[in-house]
């Protein structure tokens, strides 16, 4: 459904952020992209969202190349990025501003109800906690019912408890109309809780190192033995991926 083929991204300063990247994402799939900082994972998301264009190669949605932001592709940023001068319902309505007023209103309240903030209509963003603000951002991205939802480290600024809540919440939201989701994160546990498939990237230049499809049953238990095994394995992969290549790949995979 979403095809990324032979994508290179070189920034004007000469940095090669991505090199020869190939990735296919199926409809309704939840894909997590993990990697240390500088591995190009956020760059990749910007290319898929159409905010940036690749230097070489193509990103295509259902066969049509993505050359700019598209209504079928929603994006949730690391920060909520709500407009401070709009109330939260006006912020959510951003995504469906072309619809008639009455329909906008109905869709916005439905969307806010789904993220559990129906009672906050008319409030200002400054009155929200970090987790609430990020839920408004989720509502804003989902209100237009995108086919693909991109998430750029969406919960990394939140405390562990809120993060866990929002991860579960995201899965509920996903179950509603099952958009394809691509989640960029540096948190292995988050990737394992949410994703069907996990891609570990490595830097210099950014490319795929490992790709796994953990056969874990849902809902996933963060303390389950098998879950933890996968967590250790991926931590090892991530650790390898973020080390400069020394030729010696024999050091212990797990370092916690």
């Amino acid at each position: 459904m979403l095809g990324i083929s032979n994508v290179d991204k070189r920034y004007p300063n000469g940095l090669l952020a991505l090199s020869g990247l190939n990735l296919d994402v199926a409809e309704g799939e939840i894909l997590a992209i993990v990697g240390g900082s500088g591995c190009g994972k956020s760059t990749l998301l910007r290319l898929i969202s159409g905010l940036d264009t690749p230097t070489a190669g193509t990103v295509a949605l259902d066969g049509t190349p993505v050359t700019g932001p598209r209504p079928e592709i929603g994006l949730v940023f690391q920060e909520p990025r709500l407009m401070p001068w709009l109330t939260i319902d006006q912020n959510v309505a951003f995504g469906i501003r072309h619809l008639p007023q009455a329909e906008q209103k109905a869709r916005v309240s439905e969307s806010l109800a789904r993220v559990g903030l129906a009672s906050h209509v008319g409030h200002w963003p400054r009155e929200l906690s970090g987790g609430q603000a990020q839920r408004v951002a989720l509502a804003r991205a989902l209100v237009g019912r995108p086919k693909v939802l991109l998430l750029d480290e969406p919960f990394s600024a939140l405390d562990a408890l809120t993060r866990g809540d929002l991860q579960d919440h995201l899965l509920d939201l996903w179950a509603y109309d099952r958009p394809t989701m691509i989640l960029v994160t540096h948190d292995i546990e988050e990737a394992l809780v949410l994703a069907d498939r996990i891609v570990v990237m490595q830097p210099n230049p950014g490319r795929v190192r490992v790709e796994v499809t953990p056969p874990l049953a849902r809902p996933r238990d963060r303390l389950d033995a098998e879950f933890l095994q996968w967590k250790y394995k991926l931590l090892g992969d991530l650790d390898h991926a973020s080390r400069p290549p020394t030729g010696d790949e024999s050091f212990p995979a797990v370092a916690i």
Binding site: L51, P69, E79, M83, F94, R97
Partner: peptide
Amino acid sequence: RKLVEVGRIFRFSHREMITRILLPATL
């Protein structure tokens, strides 16, 4: 820039970018 990017994601025209983001942000 982060707020302007939100406008880009929602494919704001130049006019919308000015009236809905730049104007209120500079008010």
